[in-house]
């Protein structure tokens, strides 16, 4: 049942504990939104999920596998910036998701590359980036860049997708388009997603659960003293009002 298992995780840098006492389990296909004030360990937790850093205490298991020691193909990641490779064309950024893993050199044979480019071309057409396939990331708008970054992360078929404020730098209109894009992809792939965001509306709109990171005790003299943890785990299905939907079987035709 539980796909991602986080048991008693704490992370400290020297004497300073950033997060502690994190125990959560996530079912396959769930969308977790992570919110919280700055400095409450959201990004630290994401780095632990990504295995970019290892927890000081506790364990993180994905799909029952032993704990990852470094980032790998189980993790898909999209950052707010610098997620795609600036020296590769849009289409080659997608092909890289296949090429990097093929061998020690991270290179495809000529025939294989042509084949993968054809596949990548189809993906690009589907996500509305077909017309910029040959261009470099520097020529793309913020929304297109993040679209490419998400497609690239998913192209390696990860077990979990981690999004670190992916839409934080986008304008409101583009943001909404990107929400639709992400929801479509999710419906298609059934991906388990963790997304950090500062936008509460976005958190509840996209997430099945919303985790709030906060410090249970704030020290007035030294705000950095205490560690943060997950203080709330909201059920965010149906925009956060799961129990207000009509549960009884009725014979009356419903408006929905």
């Amino acid at each position: 049942m539980s796909y991602v298992e986080v048991k008693g995780v704490a992370k400290a840098y020297g004497k300073r504990t950033i997060i502690e006492n994190i125990n959560v389990s996530v079912a396959k296909g769930q969308f977790i939104s992570i919110v919280g004030a700055s400095g409450c360990g959201k990004s630290t937790f994401l780095r632990l999920l990504l295995a970019q850093e290892l927890p000081t205490h506790g364990e993180i298991h994905i799909d029952g596998a032993p704990m990852a020691q470094e980032p790998g193909r189980d993790h898909g990641i999209v950052f707010q910036r610098y997620s795609v490779f600036p020296h590769m064309t849009v289409i080659d950024n997608l092909v890289a998701a296949i090429a990097f893993d093929t061998n020690f050199w991270g290179r495809l044979s000529r025939a294989r590359r042509t084949e993968e480019r054809t596949k990548a071309r189809k993906t690009l057409d589907r996500i509305g980036l077909g017309h910029v396939a040959g261009q470099y990331p520097a020529d793309l708008s913020g929304g297109m860049l993040q679209r490419l970054a998400i497609a690239q992360a998913l192209a390696s078929d990860p077990k979990i997708l981690l999004l670190d404020e992916p839409f934080g730098a986008l304008d409101p209109g583009t943001k909404i388009v990107m929400h639709d894009f992400l929801q479509e992809l999710r419906d298609e792939t059934g991906m388990t997603v963790f997304m950090i965001t500062h936008d509460l509306e976005e958190a509840f709109k996209l997430g099945d659960r919303v985790w709030a990171f906060d410090k249970p005790v704030w020290d007035e003299e030294d705000p950095e003293k205490n560690a943060a943890t997950i203080t709330y785990d909201f059920d965010a299905r149906d925009d956060g009002i799961p129990f207000q939907t009509l549960r009884e079987r009725t014979n009356v035709l419903q408006a929905r």
Binding site: L50, P71, R73, Y82, F85, A97, Q152, S156
Partner: peptide, 27 residues
Amino acid sequence: LPREQFIKAQTLGASSMAIGLNVILPQ
């Protein structure tokens, strides 16, 4: 070079050699 690129390359399964050759060298 942005750390993000190194992380991203690792999540795509690149070895150290693949990162050096395909991410660092061309840049």
